[in-house]
Simulated assay, not measured.
Amino acid sequence: MAELRVGLIGVGMMGRHHARVIRETEGVTLAGVADEAGDPRRSAGDAPIHRTVGELIASGIDAAVVAVPTQAHEAIALELADAGVHALVEKPITVDIESGTRVVDAFEKAGLVGAVGHIERYNPALQSLRQRIDAGELGDVYQIATRRQGPFPSRIADVGVVKDLATHDIDATAWLAQSLYSTVFAHVSSRSGRAHEDMVSAAAQLENGIITNHLVNWLSPMKERITVVTGERGAFVADTVSADLTFFENGTFSMEWESVMAFRGVSEGTVTRFALNKREPLRVEHEAFRDAILGLRSDIVTMREGLENVRVAEALLRSAAEAASVKVVR
């Protein structure tokens, strides 16, 4: 079978990583790059460099990866859909619900594979956590809490922390819980002097009753990516920086003092840190995109799911503006 010809649009901070992984992924070839600034780091190797998306499409590609600023996603994605090219678009899918809807409709109408780069789904820790939740190891799930903090990324200027960073947690939480968001409440702050928010503290409830909390900012001196899932039998803690997964089991022991026992609740039990096969999430994401195009499997983050993440993000921003709990409207 001939290899899929994949084009790359944008070879900046994220694009250069996509270029490397495309070149190393079995069954695909980096057919060309489109970037008006060229490829000064030589990330694309010997692949042809084009100044426009149109030139890249005309060179003959089966699929494309879009790794440009969010405000350019819609126009490029629609151009790809019109040309019959499958696409993996970096998150968020677009800047707002309206533009995202146009992109989703275009790809679905054309019968094309459209994916969004919510890479955390492919992190070994979260993949193992999802499997263990599905297997019933936690029992009923009560709460999912996330912390995503780190230094300010100077490359991000067109959206705030909610759409750029918190959408990772929105997507991962809905995926782990297998439920959509129902209501949200959020506070945001802008401390860096930029036009968009750089901190958010959010609480929400999913349609299946699970409650969630998200603490996200661009102003912390340390990088933290933590997801805690608490349930009937204990709590899983996933660290997606180190790709570690730890289970804190509820302890069980008898107490003679009944009045204390009644208020004690759960206790600490066995702590287990799992050994995981730590494959690079970006590589797993590209393999999923490739296999979806080939019809072998379907575990991409679809464009419709990416649109849902933007919908929740906009509900968070609306909640912060109104200082009220709001329902996620679909």
Rank of each mutant, 00 (worst) to 15 (best):
R225I: 05
R233L: 14
I144S: 01
T272G: 08
L56G: 03
A75W: 06
E268D: 12
E74P: 01
W175R: 06
P69N: 08
D140G: 09
A106G: 09
V116I: 11
R225M: 14
L317Q: 02
E24N: 10
A77P: 01
L296M: 14
F107L: 08
E207M: 13
M199Q: 06
A313T: 02
L88N: 05
N213I: 15
A275I: 03
S259L: 11
E322F: 00
V33F: 04
Q178R: 15
V200N: 03
E258I: 07
T270S: 08
N208K: 14
G150Q: 08
E24Q: 15
S319F: 10
V11F: 04
S267K: 03
I61Q: 09
G60R: 07
I300C: 09
V229K: 03
S99F: 01
L215G: 04
T227E: 02
R42M: 13
L165G: 01
P281Q: 07
Y122H: 12
W257H: 13
F185P: 00
E120S: 07
D244C: 09
Q127P: 01
F248W: 04
H286D: 12
I119C: 02
D158Y: 06
L126T: 14
A202S: 11
G45A: 11
T252I: 14
W218R: 07
E108T: 08
V116Q: 04
I93R: 01
F274C: 04
I144W: 00
T25L: 14
Q71A: 12
V284W: 06
P69F: 05
